[in-house]
Write a protein that binds this DNA or RNA. Structure first.
Lengths: 216, 216
DNA sequence: TGACGGTTCCCCCTCACGGGGGAGACGGTC
DNA sequence: GACCGTCTCCCCCGTGAGGGGGAACCGTCA
């Protein structure tokens, strides 16, 4: 029998995208959709999906509260796959602490999305960002890796570095993280100091060389 | 004949969503997709779409620059529909100033999305407030590679880019190549223009993503 | 209670960066 | 000869980046 999935996202476009990607698979079936966390519980009770693909950032009730609510009030709850746009979204960590089984980046390729759904359906839990990071680091060169490990970046600094490595300016990073540009500058300075980099270009190079971010 | 649309968004999920929504209409046809602004111009020339649905926030070349580039370099250009998550996204206003014909919120309902495409295709421009979102780069993004291939850097420009990708400043590159810093600046500007990069950091990212330089 | 690290934001300051021009020298091609 | 691309260098100019301070809030932990 197919894996049944409930899609929860406030953007119809994202729901349509997930539906298109998942329904192309013979073993996966989209059982229903919801536009907000508040609608999830009755739908889960009614449809009893195997997996809930849940956006973290939603109006009214976000993915964290919705995750908690589902796990608390439903017997034999579905696996919860948290969907997010940003790496290192602190909402994701909260959702994982709340009991979600894995997370999924919206920029993932269709094949990766399908893979993630199958994995959580089978009871595997997807790697935490930290695990992914250390895994990736094993493939980097050891000098850069140890530099990066010694760096011991905070969550916020790591998030800023990731966005730097995507070519974003300080003000763009600020918009992404919902903070002021002065705050971003503080984090950027901390990253540069910890990595021994003179400017953001050198920091991005270090990120690539250490495997902190990976090319194609 | 159907309205042909080119989708430009860095998130595969959003592209899939737009495609699903638009292709459900008999009079609309998705001619192609691109993950980054840098890939838009050749695709527009090749496919000659009626409408380009373009995300504003993209790595390497954002929707604003891409809009400018298309309008400047293509004869009989397509209508450009800017796609965004946030209302009041200053990027959207910039894109409209750059010559975009309308904008569209990602959280719009499918019917509204279809309506917007039909309207701009007919030559109407729509300017009601709304928004979308999206960001992030597709791993293994072919846009960077093709951008690099199309770039056709001269020997000198390639040499400068290699040194940029080692973290050298303009004056250090100048010393390394035994030329003046003004000369280096000229080459750097040429590299940025050819790669569609906004600054040296984005150029270095493109160099890594395209395999022009490889991590250790 | 107090210390501390992390996050947020503010000030002032300097300067390398990158865009906009222009220009001369060289070598090929038509 | 005229033309074009490449490489070299020059000017002015605005701004984003980054350093050096300081400060407030919060949770943790001793």
């Amino acid at each position: 029998m197919p894996i049944t999935v409930l899609l929860v996202d406030d953007e119809p476009l994202v729901r349509a995208g997930l539906r298109a990607v998942l329904e192309a698979q013979p073993d996966i079936e989209v059982a229903g959709e919801a536009a907000d966390g508040a609608a999830v519980i009755p739908l889960v009770r009614q449809l009893r999906p195997d997996v809930v693909a849940m956006d973290v950032r939603m109006p009214l009730m976000d993915g964290i509260e919705a995750t908690r609510a589902v796990l608390r009030t439903v017997d034999d709850p579905p696996k919860i796959l948290v969907v997010t746009t940003f790496e290192n979204d602190e909402y994701v960590y909260e959702a994982l602490r709340a009991g979600a089984d894995g997370f999924l980046l919206k920029r993932a390729r269709p094949a990766e999305i399908v893979h993630a759904v199958r994995l959580v359906a089978e009871g595997e839990s997807l790697l935490f960002p930290a695990a992914v990071r250390s895994l990736a680091a094993e493939y980097g060169n050891s000098a850069a890796r140890t530099a990066m490990e010694r760096a011991a970046l905070t969550e916020r600094e790591a998030a800023v570095l990731r966005l730097m490595a995507r070519g974003l300016s300080n003000s763009e990073i600020a918009a992404q993280l919902f903070v002021g540009t002065e705050t971003v500058k503080t984090h950027v300075s901390a990253v540069l100091a910890k990595l021994g980099a003179r400017d953001r270009t050198q920091a991005v190079i270090a990120a690539y060389e250490s495997g902190f971010v990976a090319p194609a």
